[in-house]
Amino acid sequence: MNQSLGEQLLKQLSQRWEDLLYALLQHMELVMMSMAIAIIVGVPLGILVTRFISLKKWVLGGAGILQTIPSLALLGFMIPFFGIGMKTAVAALFLYSLLPIIRNTCTGILDVDKATIEAAKGMGMTNGQILFKVKLPLALTVIMAGIRTATVINVGTATLAAFIGAGGLGDFIFIGISRNIDALILLGAIPAAVLALLLDSVLGYTEKLTTPRGLKI
Rank of each mutant, 00 (worst) to 15 (best):
F132H: 07
I177M: 14
G76Y: 06
A92L: 01
P80G: 12
K114T: 13
F94T: 13
G76L: 01
G167P: 11
E207I: 10
Y96R: 00
P137L: 10
S178Q: 14
L131C: 12
L186W: 14
I185A: 10
T157Q: 08
G167E: 09
T211E: 15
L169A: 07
T151G: 05
L187T: 10
I173K: 09
I101Y: 01
G85Q: 04
L110K: 02
T126E: 11
T107M: 10
L184Q: 13
G167M: 05
E207Q: 15
R179P: 03
T141I: 01
I143P: 05
T149E: 04
L209G: 02
L199T: 12
L131V: 11
V152F: 03
L187F: 09
I117L: 15
A119D: 11
A119V: 15
E207C: 08
T210R: 02
I190F: 11
F82C: 00
G146I: 07
I147K: 06
C106G: 00
I181A: 15
T206S: 14
K87Q: 13
L209T: 04
I84N: 00
L198W: 05
N154G: 04
G128W: 12
L99W: 04
A139Q: 08
K135D: 14
G167N: 11
G170L: 08
L138G: 08
A183I: 09
L160K: 01
I153D: 02
I130N: 05
V152R: 02
V112R: 04
I185T: 04
I175V: 15
N180A: 15
L98P: 04
G124C: 08
S178L: 11
M86F: 06
K87S: 13
A192G: 14
L138R: 02
I147G: 07
P80N: 07
Y96W: 04
T149N: 08
G122D: 13
K121G: 10
L98I: 05
G167T: 09
K87N: 13
L209N: 01
L209S: 07
A92D: 01
I177P: 08
L110V: 11
L131K: 12
G168E: 06
A192E: 12
A183S: 15
I173M: 15
D171Y: 04
I102H: 03
K114G: 08
L98G: 01
I130L: 11
G108M: 02
A183D: 14
A150G: 08
K87G: 06
L199A: 06
F132P: 00
E207T: 15
